[in-house]
Design a protein around this nucleic acid. Structure first.
Lengths: 210, 210
DNA sequence: TAGATTGTTAATCGATTAACAATC
DNA sequence: TAGATTGTTAATCGATTAACAATC
């Protein structure tokens, strides 16, 4: 279980294994092999074994993985018991949806406030973009979850105020890229709708080929 | 602008260029170079040039790209004028949110129905999982957007009924993987929350290192 | 002609796969 | 001992980068 230099791609696969193992635990399965895990993913059994190498303590040759041990070890490694405190930035409707996501009750993130101009009925303290940095200090927040973009300066102040990681679902990514890189803090920028457009393009090509 | 075998990674970057060019068009910028595009992304100018190679007709050496031409060509290639008809599957609240996303009014996807057990006020025809296949035929739908999982059999019937591409935000991915691979239709499975967990893990590691 | 920029080729890098060794 | 399975190394593959050629 000793730490190894996780490449970002590998790290991205670990939460998926974690979810699969959680299902195994819930279904009373206490033992599994790499092929059984791989069956729930787009990866091969060899890839799973290599990814889980840092958790070799939970595996035995000729036997497979000890589900519960591995689940616990993965959870610890991923920090699901660390309760990172996060501020949501954006409009109320998407925020409410995200706030209801099981992740926030189960997987180690605690929402501590929202930053929005809307009226909100969310049971969370509220702030504005101008007061964001102060609120981050007051709430002791360490994560920023962006559904609406922030200006570079606002982002810089947020990081100065204690933000250590940024997660963004905004289309505009330049500010996050520039500021987070300069500050050398981890970030993730997702474009779910771009993936949908790429899918359409592939569907179109598939139709033409026929 | 001749078609080239787009790798999936490359294809995934095109919608992003498309959005950036849309901004250029809206801001009255009619000319740009690869470095200016790259500045809004996590990629290099060389990567941008190579990705845009199939659209060489919109570029001139020593000059750069003709923004409007490139925007139009990319849009055509991506199929934004093809108006794919899509069915949303899942619970009302997330569906309503997704249905409001600008993508569905602007970027070439037309929602034609929802599949949910909830009461819904969405101004769209409604069906149940059992009647999904029939509804797909009736609505002439070609895309499935999953916010809740379907059973393998339901998915198979949906594809038989005319679905040519599947987009999933569900945690369970085995059914989509198995059925879409077997049917050889394009699909995308996204796990936005896994990315958030991976981010937390990275933040944790960064803190330990200090 | 000089400067700017795309286009292209070769080199590098990293990730995945395949084969098999080690071990329970 | 035999079978199952992880662990590991070498080979392959693909994507990215760097250098520079071509051209406007």
């Amino acid at each position: 279980m000793s730490e190894s230099a996780d490449s970002q791609k590998r790290l991205q696969r670990l939460p998926q294994y974690y979810r699969i193992l959680k299902n195994f635990v819930q279904n009373g399965i206490f033992r599994c092999n790499s092929a059984q895990i791989a069956a729930h993913t787009a990866y091969s059994a060899v890839a799973v074994r290599r990814d889980l190498q840092p958790f070799a303590g939970c595996a035995k040759q000729g036997y497979g993985y000890h589900v519960k041990q591995l689940y616990t070890a993965l959870g610890t490694y991923l920090g699901v018991r660390d309760q990172f405190r996060a501020v949501l930035v954006g409009h109320t409707a998407p925020l409410a949806l995200l706030a209801d996501h099981p992740l926030f009750s189960v997987h180690g993130i605690r929402l501590c406030g929202v930053c929005t101009t809307d009226d909100t009925t969310l049971p969370l303290p509220k702030t504005s973009a101008d007061d964001l940095a102060q609120s981050i200090v007051r709430w002791d927040a360490s994560l920023l979850i962006l559904l609406s973009p922030l200006e570079k300066e606002q982002l810089k102040s947020a990081i100065d105020a204690g933000i250590v990681g940024v997660y963004s679902l905004c289309e505009e990514e330049e500010a996050v890229l520039d500021v987070c890189r300069a500050a050398a803090i981890p970030y993730r920028i997702l474009h779910p709708m771009d993936a949908l457009m790429a899918l359409c393009c592939e569907c179109k090509q598939a139709q033409v080929e026929q």
